[in-house]
Design a protein around this nucleic acid. Structure first.
Lengths: 218, 218
DNA sequence: CGAACAATTGAAAAGATTCAAGAGTTGTGG
DNA sequence: CCACAACTCTTGAATCTTTTCAATTGTTCG
């Protein structure tokens, strides 16, 4: 466990990081950073749940990613034109560690193990992003999105199999690239096929195997 | 100009690379590496034109990327489960430099400037991939695809404004995620609006401004 | 030349969007 | 603590875009 820094920096550099990092808190719906802002730094989530979104030309929102404890956010603002290409918004009350850009760059350039892992991290993000291009009916994409919701946020408890935090219909729609009406209809489809039980806002996973099958496009 | 190695490795390491690299040639439609194969190494294109594709569950093809002289290919096979997640296929007769995996990893770990640039490269690839998720009608996506075709392969000559190599209807369809019939229909749309002139297989860009506007979703 | 492949067009069908109207939830101020 | 506003969720019907299937023409290469 722990963040990528904890795992791949030497003790000395970790102290350097701890000296420079700032702890910041945000309420639900709080904006951690905003698309278009100059890249100030790099964030790791201490605890909380966050969505990363991007504003579309047609002022639709696109949900890029969700993140939870120990995940990093803000990395897309690095290495390019040094503006955040996306916004990060807290879904629940969230506490983050903030590391200023120049400190981060210094740490990366000095820790070859860390920079090697960062290549790996970006390569994984790239793979995930490419996977989203696979063409499937909304039903299958939704199954995939629910599994992502589970993978990142987990269950409330093992027994209930209820997601600890369920994305809104609109968030699912923004992730998949469809409308919330369509999400609602497909959600009730998944209900009928017994894959899930959607109870008001929250979702209970009834048949994980089926959901995984659907997510693979079958 | 030159490859990422030429630009960011010391002279000594470049000699090391030159000692270990192998020059390989492929005819048009030749397979440079195949999805699912264990990652053998890393390629830079000496000259030629290449498409990177992935096989879908529904045995459709997805076109991930096109690449030309000095571009790198095969990098998606690194840093994960060490299998190529995609195939690379020559579009025209192509010559590549091949660098075995272990040599590449050795070079990356020893050249911090190179590894920093590789993070940058992957971050750019990620940005490009994310951009493809933006929802647009096929017409606009096609405009974007034609511009990509231009950006990577350029014109035959500045005067004619004819693409030096035009992707097939099927390739455009595989890139955008639609059918070739739809591409044909939208291509004739772009013809009528005066953005392009499609002359048999090849495309002439008539109105670059209009094409760029469409590509931005307007 | 002829076979294989690439491009084109039309018509019917499928899937998703849009618009519209209403029900259920949640949070806040009086 | 209730009431009202704001927000989220749900359902139905018409419409639109794209796909699918089918038939045909054009092009290229051995």
């Amino acid at each position: 466990m722990g963040t990528i820094f904890d795992k791949y920096c030497s003790k000395e550099w970790l102290e350097f990081i701890n000296f420079h990092k700032k702890i910041q808190s945000y309420p639900a719906k709080g904006i951690i950073f905003k698309e278009g802002d100059l890249t100030q730094g790099f964030f790791t989530i201490r605890h909380g749940k966050v969505k990363v979104v991007s504003e579309e030309p047609d002022n639709r929102q696109r949900l890029i990613r969700i993140a939870a404890d120990d995940d990093i956010i803000g990395h897309r603002g690095f290495f390019g034109n040094w503006k955040y290409p996306v916004s990060a918004i807290a879904l629940t009350p969230t506490q983050v560690s903030f590391l200023p850009t120049e400190i981060f760059v210094q740490v990366v350039k000095a820790n070859s193990e860390l920079s090697y892992r960062l290549i790996e991290f970006f390569a994984d993000e790239l793979r995930l992003s490419e996977e989203k291009h696979i063409l499937m009916p909304v039903k299958n994409k939704l199954a995939k999105a629910i599994l992502m919701n589970y993978n990142v946020f987990g269950f409330e408890n093992e027994k209930s199999k209820k997601l600890s935090y369920t994305l809104s219909r609109q968030d699912f729609a923004d992730y998949i690239g469809t409308t919330y009406e369509t999400i609602i209809r497909e959600l009730s489809n998944l209900n009928q096929s017994g894959a899930i039980k959607s109870d008001g806002k929250s979702i209970i996973i009834k048949n994980m195997k089926l959901l995984q099958k659907l997510a693979m496009g079958q």
